[in-house]
């Protein structure tokens, strides 16, 4: 992979070991705090402003993240893909993480995941269910749907995951270079998991704590959206099945 940066851009990398990709869509009230915490830990944050209509962009700039702004809204999958490409183009980070902008993830968990990936893994995925279920509070309906989804997506992949839809992930630069998300909406999560758990990669999970605040709950996707995701996946699979 092209690891050398253009000379003029080299100072931007800030020689950070980890680049954090953060999709941002109308999160002006919280995003600066989330970014600052990560920047203070010595990471470079790539905030992908997904066509926000509030003043998220100013908040991102103030907090000291690298801002990439979509001219139109592309959805979370589109933002993640842009972030992965930006991280490779603008930084020389060895590890690339994804992190939610609404403050539901803990920087401490990410630090733990960085320690874990250094033990020789390619992919470390955050899981809410690894730790005996206890740490993350959620409704039984959400829990059940997530568990069923996890079972469905586990079929056919070699790695058994306990949590299919967690936004906290950490991959090596080499793995990030291989990611090419086609779904731009929310179905990207399962598509991403499919890429990340494909065979020669060494994949592991790390227990994380997700904080469902009033804010993140109001921003979170309604459960009905799982129908959209499922339909997207099915039609995408029919379209691409056994296609070269």
């Amino acid at each position: 992979m092209n690891r050398t940066l253009p000379v003029a851009l080299a100072p931007l990398s800030r020689r950070a070991e980890t680049a954090v990709v953060m999709p941002v869509y109308n999160e002006a009230t919280v995003v600066a705090g989330v970014i600052r915490e990560l920047v203070d830990l010595g990471m470079v944050v790539i905030a992908v402003d997904d066509g926000s209509s509030d003043h998220s962009a100013e908040e991102i700039d103030k907090a000291g993240a690298v801002r990439v702004t979509h001219p139109i809204n592309l959805g979370q999958g589109g933002a993640l893909q842009t972030g992965f490409e930006a991280a490779q183009r603008f930084t020389d980070a060895k590890y690339i993480a994804t992190f939610d902008a609404d403050g539901q993830h803990q920087a401490q968990d990410l630090l733990g995941m960085i320690e874990k990936i250094k033990q020789g893994y390619d992919v470390v995925l955050g899981s809410r269910f690894l730790d005996g279920d206890a740490r993350t509070e959620m409704s039984w309906l959400r829990r059940t749907i997530l568990k069923v989804a996890t079972k469905v997506f586990n079929r056919g992949s070699e790695v058994r995951l306990t949590d299919a839809h967690n936004g906290l992930r950490l991959v090596t630069r080499e793995v990030a270079a291989k990611i090419d998300l086609a779904h731009i909406g929310m179905a990207h999560a399962s598509e991403l998991e499919q890429v990340l758990t494909s065979s020669p990669l060494r994949v592991t999970e790390y227990p994380v704590h997700v904080l469902y605040t009033e804010y993140s709950r109001s921003k979170g996707q309604p459960l009905l959206n799982s129908i959209n995701i499922l339909a997207d996946i099915v039609s995408h699979r029919i379209t691409t099945w056994s296609r070269k």
Partner: peptide
């Protein structure tokens, strides 16, 4: 999507 992404990355690079 690809078009918008290239626009976004190009603009960010120019700003950086």
């Amino acid at each position: 999507t690809r078009l918008a992404r290239q626009v976004a990355l190009g603009e960010a690079e120019a700003r950086l």
